[in-house]
Simulated assay, not measured.
Amino acid sequence: MSMTSHIPARRLPETSAMLQLIKPITWFPPMWAYLCGVVSSGAALSGSWGLVLLGVLLAGPIVCGMSQAANDWCDRHVDAINEPDRPIPSGRIPGRWGLWIALAMSGLSLLVGWQLGPWGFAATVFGVLAAWAYSAEPVRLKRSGWWGPGLVGLCYEGLPWFTGAAVLSAGAPSPQIVLVALLYALGAHGIMTLNDFKALEGDTRTGVNSLPVTLGPARAARVACWGMALPQVVVIGLLVLWDRPLHALAITALLCAQIAAMRVLLRDPEGRAPWYNGTGVLFYITGMMIAAFALRYLA
């Protein structure tokens, strides 16, 4: 009999494990996108800093953190293969605590979203439902390599951008803002596809049809690169059309830097996917903020 069999099971979760469960490293993209929405709205920030701060907290630690908790609970069997040291499969968050945390944060998300007015609340409801639709049975859109990353990209980039612009404008954002936010959300599909490389073994064994599983690493990486690049080309064209040539030129330079990084990625997709997510994505999100300032001048 092993020595570990004498160690009693935990009854309460570890504090550090609860923080790990909601993955602070994932909060930045939606927080950044919300700020892009704030900037693009053209609204004066004086007197609105409370809405800005509350929206950033909602987009990152609360809604994104909730989605990570829900995903970890629904993925606990997959994580037992891919990452057995994760909080739930390792037992540091025992029993159904992972589920209770995700449900409690869902309620908190709706409560905070209510403070942002009808547009902010509606966006929060959509985000909470999308998080559970992505991870939970019987919907579990995560099983699809097309719908799953598309939904995450929409909720990480497009929805927070839309929300930030709507909350600061106290109304529906302009068609230009909606279009650019949607394009960057479409491009984020490629980022999410690259993120799926780390779960390739577990996804294969548990029937999650991510693009790295269904297409193979090499083809999936090429699809991801095209998926990230083409929406930015459209954004550049729109900014030229809207008489913002300097902003278009800056995003073009950032896209060229991404293409150089993509060439490195494609030499070893499995090994280089984490590297690209730490380097090439930085150029992508920088372009988002430049586009936001271009839209602000249009407003």
Rank of each mutant, 00 (worst) to 15 (best):
L21N: 07
Y184P: 02
W147R: 14
I191M: 12
G278T: 09
D72M: 13
G190K: 08
L103P: 06
A185Q: 09
M31Y: 08
T214K: 14
G171N: 07
D79W: 11
S90Q: 03
V235T: 12
G42V: 04
L265Y: 07
V78A: 13
A257P: 00
C74D: 14
A172T: 15
A273E: 04
P13T: 00
P274E: 09
Q20F: 00
A260P: 00
V139N: 01
L298F: 12
G216S: 06
Y297C: 00
M262K: 03
A199T: 07
F197C: 10
A80C: 01
L179H: 02
F126L: 14
L282W: 10
Q68C: 14
V167D: 05
A17H: 06
L230Q: 02
G150L: 15
L108K: 13
G190V: 10
A224H: 07
V281L: 13
S48I: 01
T206V: 11
I285S: 10
Q232R: 15
L200G: 00
C256T: 04
I101P: 07
V139I: 15
V233L: 15
Q115Y: 05
A136V: 09
V235A: 10
A70W: 08
L57K: 07
K198D: 01
L35Y: 03
A185P: 01
G237I: 12
A70R: 04
P217L: 06
G280D: 04
A170E: 02
R96W: 01
T26D: 04
F283S: 10
P24I: 12
Q232G: 00
L179S: 10
R10W: 01
A123N: 11
A260E: 08
V52R: 07
M288Y: 06
P61K: 13
G117A: 05
A185F: 12
H247K: 09
